[in-house]
């Protein structure tokens, strides 16, 4: 019976197809085949990457306990606005970062997929908290409802562990994402406040 319950949790997902496509080496007929811009200018790409990294607008996608820590990150004490994430956009069409904060279960999975599809490229995903990374405290033998990690559904860029992670941890996740986009940890020249190394 546990096997049947496990089978019920498998859902058609992008990440699986992406993996298969890479293994096969052939394009296949997939939903999304983004050829990229027609004209590529190295310098323009670099400048655009720096702009994107410094202005990541998250989508409000708090599902469970981690959502409160995400709200704390947006408030005055930890203040994500100084890193560019000035506003949390409720609409996926207006955001470019999806912070999945909380547990995704079988009923919620199609909604996550729909929201991910609606975001315009380039889009990034941070898996915040143990539940989004691997199912967290609910990835047990008797699990019948929780998806064990959202990377089974959508491709994830940065994983922030914790249950829930501290707001500082999530800010570090966003800085790591900036590093992933531009290659440099603080993409914008920072004024040195003290002699401590950056």
């Amino acid at each position: 019976m546990a096997e049947e319950k496990r089978n019920m949790l498998r859902i058609h997902s992008y990440a699986g197809e992406l993996r298969e496509r890479n293994e096969r080496g052939t394009p296949g007929n997939l939903v999304e085949q983004d050829p990229g811009p027609i004209v590529r200018l190295q310098l323009a790409e670099k400048i655009l990457d720096v702009c994107r990294a410094n202005s990541l607008w998250p989508m409000t996608f708090g599902l469970a306990c981690c959502a409160i820590e995400m709200m704390c990150m947006g408030m005055a004490r930890f203040d994500i606005a100084r890193y560019g994430s000035e506003v949390f956009r409720p609409s996926p069409r207006q955001s470019d970062l999806m912070i999945v904060a909380g547990t995704v279960n079988k009923k919620m999975a199609p909604a996550v997929m729909t929201l991910y599809e609606q975001m315009p490229s380039p889009k990034y995903v941070i898996a915040m908290g143990n539940c989004a990374i691997s199912g967290g405290p609910f990835a047990v033998k008797e699990n019948y409802n929780v998806i064990e990690g959202i990377d089974k559904l959508i491709p994830v860029d940065v994983y922030v562990p914790g249950c829930p992670p501290r707001p500082e941890g999530l800010i570090e996740g966003i800085l790591k994402l900036q590093e992933k986009i531009t290659g440099v940890r603080h993409p914008f020249p920072q004024r040195k406040v003290s002699d401590a190394p950056n």
Binding site: L63, A64, N105, K107, A111, V140, E142, N143, N145
Partner: peptide, 14 residues
């Protein structure tokens, strides 16, 4: 409801 169901009552039995 049900988008946040995390089987707490079942886990209590296990």
């Amino acid at each position: 409801l049900g988008y946040g169901h995390r089987m707490q009552e079942k886990l209590a039995e296990c």
